[in-house]
Computed example of a mutant assay.
Amino acid sequence: MPNHTFHPGNQLMRTVGKLKATAVAGALAGAALVGVGVGTAVADSPSPSPSASTSDVAPTEAGTAFRTAVAVRQGRQATASASSGDYLYWMFPADAGQRPTVTAKVTLPEAASRHGASTWRIDVYDGLRRRQPCMYGMQSVSAAQDAAAVELSCTLRPTVAWADTWSTDPLPGTYYIRLTAVSLPETDRGLPFKAEVEPTVLDTGGAHAVDGKLSTPLGAKSAVEPDGGWASGWWSDRWLWTGAGGLLAALAGIAGYNLTRGRGRPSRVPRGA
Rank of each mutant, 00 (worst) to 15 (best):
27 A>Q: 07
161 A>F: 02
155 T>H: 02
227 D>P: 06
230 W>K: 02
123 D>G: 05
15 T>Y: 08
235 W>M: 13
20 K>M: 10
61 E>I: 02
151 E>Q: 12
43 A>G: 06
48 P>M: 03
32 A>Q: 06
14 R>V: 14
136 Y>T: 11
217 P>M: 02
33 L>T: 13
202 L>T: 15
153 S>Y: 03
100 P>M: 09
44 D>C: 13
201 V>S: 04
117 A>M: 07
108 L>H: 02
220 A>L: 00
107 T>I: 11
175 Y>C: 01
42 V>F: 09
237 D>W: 05
215 S>Q: 08
40 T>L: 12
173 G>N: 05
241 W>K: 08
52 A>P: 11
102 V>C: 04
133 P>E: 11
273 A>K: 11
60 T>E: 14
202 L>M: 12
270 P>V: 13
259 L>P: 01
105 K>I: 09
185 P>Q: 08
111 A>G: 03
59 P>I: 12
211 D>I: 07
216 T>G: 06
19 L>V: 10
220 A>Y: 04
62 A>K: 03
165 T>K: 10
236 S>F: 00
44 D>Y: 11
58 A>T: 11
66 F>H: 09
237 D>M: 03
266 P>E: 08
29 A>K: 09
125 Y>E: 01
103 T>R: 11
257 Y>V: 03
252 A>N: 01
267 S>K: 12
108 L>M: 06
226 P>F: 06
179 L>N: 00
187 T>F: 04
70 V>Y: 05
17 G>H: 12
134 C>H: 06
66 F>G: 09
174 T>G: 07
8 P>T: 06
14 R>F: 13
100 P>D: 04
261 R>K: 15
62 A>E: 02
180 T>A: 09
194 K>L: 05
158 P>G: 10
195 A>L: 02
239 W>H: 15
242 T>V: 11
259 L>F: 13
178 R>C: 01
107 T>Y: 09
209 A>E: 14
207 A>R: 15
134 C>A: 15
189 R>S: 03
121 R>Q: 15
268 R>S: 15
195 A>K: 01
7 H>Y: 11
57 V>R: 12
16 V>H: 03
2 P>A: 12
233 G>F: 12
133 P>D: 09
224 V>T: 10
175 Y>M: 04
260 T>Y: 14
181 A>W: 01
197 V>A: 11
12 L>W: 05
22 T>N: 11
203 D>N: 15
77 Q>Y: 02
165 T>Y: 11
140 S>F: 00
225 E>P: 04
201 V>K: 04
273 A>I: 14
54 T>G: 02
73 R>W: 00
157 R>K: 14
248 L>I: 08
83 S>Y: 09
207 A>V: 13
234 W>K: 13
30 G>L: 15
82 A>W: 07
236 S>P: 00
167 S>D: 14
252 A>T: 03
221 K>M: 09
57 V>A: 15
131 R>I: 07
78 A>I: 06
249 A>G: 10
204 T>Y: 07
94 A>L: 00
9 G>S: 14
72 V>D: 02
189 R>F: 01
50 P>L: 14
38 V>Y: 11
169 D>W: 12
60 T>G: 12
184 L>W: 01
60 T>K: 14
23 A>Y: 00
273 A>P: 03
31 A>P: 01
141 V>L: 00
120 W>G: 00
139 Q>E: 15
210 V>N: 04
264 G>F: 07
256 G>L: 15
141 V>N: 05
